[in-house]
Lab assay of single mutants.
Amino acid sequence: YKIYPYDSLIVTNSISVKLPKDVDRTRLERHLSPEEFQEVFGMSIEEFDRLALWKRNDLKKKALLF
């Protein structure tokens, strides 16, 4: 996945969300650098992957990456 800054990946309720063209809309968190991922989620990507799907989705919603 290509890395993008968190600010360019957050999704708000506005209709005209302009995400970069090559971003996987269903896995926005994968486009964060490991350092920024840790900062946003408070855990590593590996720890995040071990969580239940509902928990990952809940965290993504709170981080505006859903």
Rank of each mutant, 00 (worst) to 15 (best):
M43Q: 05
R25D: 07
D58A: 14
D7T: 15
L51H: 06
N13F: 04
K60G: 01
K60A: 02
V23N: 01
K21F: 10
L51E: 06
P20W: 04
L53V: 11
D7G: 11
L64G: 12
D22A: 05
E47W: 07
V17C: 15
R50Y: 09
R30D: 02
G42T: 07
M43I: 07
F66D: 08
L19N: 05
D58F: 12
F48M: 02
K55Q: 14
V23I: 09
I45V: 09
Y6D: 01
F37A: 02
R25Y: 09
V23R: 02
V40D: 00
I45R: 09
N57Y: 08
S16G: 13
V40P: 00
K61G: 05
L9G: 00
T26F: 14
L59D: 01
N13C: 14
I15K: 15
L53G: 09
K62Y: 06
S33M: 05
Y6Q: 01
N13E: 11
N13P: 10
S33I: 05
P20N: 05
R56D: 01
L59P: 00
A52C: 12
L65A: 01
E29P: 01
T26L: 12
A63L: 06
A63N: 07
S44M: 10
E29T: 01
A52N: 09
L59G: 01
V17Q: 15
N57H: 08
S33H: 08
P5H: 04
P34I: 14
E39Q: 14
Q38S: 12
K62T: 09
S16W: 08
R56K: 10
V11S: 09
P5R: 04
F66V: 08
F41D: 00
E36H: 05
I3R: 05
S44N: 14
S16M: 13
P5T: 07
Y1W: 09
G42H: 12
F41M: 06
K60C: 02
K18Q: 14
P20L: 07
E46G: 11
L9P: 01
W54F: 09
A52D: 13
I15G: 15
L51S: 04
F66I: 09
P5Q: 04
F48R: 00
D24E: 06
R25K: 12
D22G: 08
K2L: 10
Y4L: 05
E29Q: 02
L19M: 09
S44K: 13
E35A: 11
A52P: 15
A52T: 13
S16N: 14
K21P: 15
F37G: 00
K18S: 14
K62F: 06
V40Y: 06
K55H: 12
I15T: 15
R30F: 03
D22C: 05
V11W: 08
L53S: 10
K18I: 11
E46D: 13
L32Y: 01
M43L: 07
L32N: 00
L59S: 03
I3H: 07
H31G: 01
F66Y: 15
F37K: 00
S16A: 12
L32T: 00
D7K: 15
T12I: 13
Y4N: 01
S16E: 14
H31E: 00
K21E: 15
